[in-house]
Amino acid sequence: MRERRWRGPEGPKSPVALLVALVLASFCLMTLDSTAGGPVDSARRAAGEVFGPVEVATATAVRPFTAVPHWFRSKDDMQQDLIALQAENSRLKSDLATHDYDKNRLEEYDGLTAAARSLGTSLVPARVVGMGSSQSFSRTVTIDAGSDAGIRPDLTVLDNDGLVGRVLRVTHTTATVLLIVDANSVVGARVGRSMQVGLLHGRGALGTDGRLDLELVDQTAVPSEGDAVVTWGSEAGGPYVSGVPIGKVTHVYSSVRETTQRAVIDPYVDFGALDLVGVVVPSGTASDRAVIEANGTLR
């Protein structure tokens, strides 16, 4: 009989037992997470509280350098707009620091301000500090505003081009946003010209492939190419507020078998280059930063 000796935790034993144990542990974690409200949710929250501020700090530290590749890579005006917006935003911050609330100097928030005015709600400005990788096959970003800024789950997130997504969960200083291009994202949408309603599904792709599929409820309604699509919204104001521009129709397919019209929507927002966004909050929300009110003022 061979003597089996304990050689310490790092001993050159067959790693298969450990492999099996850890694989089973992973499956346990998946099972735990699939039940809503389980311990994984609090673990997720705790991880967010720890990693969130680190992500904010890192994003702030690398921001001056990340503008360089952006500048080289960009061919569309959008990048230029973003750079201008960043410059103007930092100027605004210095203005705020000197308590110079001159309304004429708020051009940088013009886009967001216009959005807030037309929606009749307040906007909490935030910046994207972390972005999920394609390897994870989910399109989510972290923003640097959390429950301290008055943000809670299921709020609408937009930028000055249109709808970005909705808040999934928050920590004190950060929030996780599900982008509308995520394959699990469903948005109630309305074709601006015909007022037809439908459901907008993400395709899970970013960049130029970042298209959305619109399935109209009424199969007799045929959207035409170039039609603008806005959010439908719900009575309670819940996940998405109504009237936020999403994109425009680029292709229309009709499926006889499924008796629905399917249209491909090109979103206004460039999801590969998100930076400054606004979170729609109820008017009068307490926040740790300047909130853009419905009448266009900063509070």
């Binding site: 992973s26 991880a47 990693f51 989510t140």
Partner: peptide, 15 residues
């Protein structure tokens, strides 16, 4: 799996 902005089922990257 847990750090933001992850939203997939926890345990998948662990596996």
């Amino acid at each position: 799996d847990l750090a933001p902005p992850a939203d997939h089922l926890a345990g998948r990257w662990a596996l």
